[in-house]
Design a protein around this nucleic acid. Sequence first.
DNA 1: GCAAAAGTGTTGTACTTACACCCATGG
DNA 2: CCATGGGTGTAAGTACAACACTTTTGC
Lengths: 230, 230
Amino acid sequence: MLPSYYENNTHFLIAVDCIIFGFRKKELHVLLTRRPVEPLKNEWSLMGGFMEENESLTQAAEKVLYRYTQQKNIYMEQVGAYGEVDRDAGGRVISVAFYAMVKMENFDTSLARKFDARWINVTALPELVFDHNQMVHDALTLLQYKVSTEPVIFNFFDKKFTLPALQDLYEAIYQIPLDKRNFRKKLGTMDLLDKLEVKDKESSKRGAYYYSFNRERYADLIKAGRRFSM
Amino acid sequence: MLPSYYENNTHFLIAVDCIIFGFRKKELHVLLTRRPVEPLKNEWSLMGGFMEENESLTQAAEKVLYRYTQQKNIYMEQVGAYGEVDRDAGGRVISVAFYAMVKMENFDTSLARKFDARWINVTALPELVFDHNQMVHDALTLLQYKVSTEPVIFNFFDKKFTLPALQDLYEAIYQIPLDKRNFRKKLGTMDLLDKLEVKDKESSKRGAYYYSFNRERYADLIKAGRRFSM
DNA sequence: GCAAAAGTGTTGTACTTACACCCATGG
DNA sequence: CCATGGGTGTAAGTACAACACTTTTGC
């Protein structure tokens, strides 16, 4: 039996909206869909869903992510809660936004048809429903901060990546060009990447070496009181 | 009439919890209270309240801040939403945390008696109810970031402040000692403070000059593409 | 053989850190 | 006159920014 102090208060619908980021061909994309229900049916929208009774906010977000990507263990972080009274034209809904980094190389394109989902370049977003444009903006700001202070950018890749691709990704996130030599020097001084034997021959004739992120050396760096910085 | 797509979903209690920071005598404090209701009645808790029907999250937080401080226009920022299933022993409640910076010099001590409120040094917090310790920790992390990148620290003062007090405050927030000369040099290069005629004679015999933050010059600095950094 | 992308070092400048003494005043 | 906190500059080290040419290879 719940205390009446609790139950005499208003109850609210809670939604979770996910800003799903992916990287391909030098561009940072967001996974959008055509909103399947009224109001604003068929307008562009983030991937979302209502929170259910026996799940945490995090679990609700994981559920949404799994539904639209079929991937598990996606890197995800909360952006914040959005609670303006009129933010959702369909009713009083408080929404909690999460951003996620997915490996687009693994993305199942049949999902796109099933959910009417499309990857849209973050620099060319259409008008989204409700406050979703604001959410994307806030998510990108947070993403910029995160990838500059923690080695989370590697979540966009499936284990290995080339340095040109990594630089392209940082440039797409920061939305500024970076100097190639300075970029590689800075990466080099942290000594966190392992150069692999293989090259990516798809995006150039010469081919670029693949690298992988070394978690053990990152742990050592942190233990030594140093920090990731890009 | 609401679409059934909306109303067929579970509704939740939403609370707002405020981490109210204040600064006095070289120490950063948080305003705590003894929880007035069951469960965990009389345990240490943040200031909070349930969200009501016709208010935004921000308005709900402002309401809580006003109730416990009687101050308006308090600088406030959202920390995030907390939604673990068992986070509140009294029922299923999603809480959104906000931190606030208040001017302790203006604080009305009669409020302390009325609400059983006490300022507690942030380095010596007791065990708080639910996930409130986590909220304070997250709020402090965010506060550290904010005061290093935006000139928001001045919200702890009522217009004027001395440089020793400002340095003490940064040290209390960062929880590391700072070098006095380097601190003043860095402040000086941004040229955002106006030296006043008057001195504070309370905390030393010689007295320290008061300064005030110059909003116009800060706007100019931003316009010039530069940024606040401390 | 040439276009297209990968890879590689140096130098000047700006910022950060470390550090010690004199000053003003109330008691 | 002395204890207490306020105020001031310099030099070394580190990090950042700017910049151009050679290498590889598919076509």
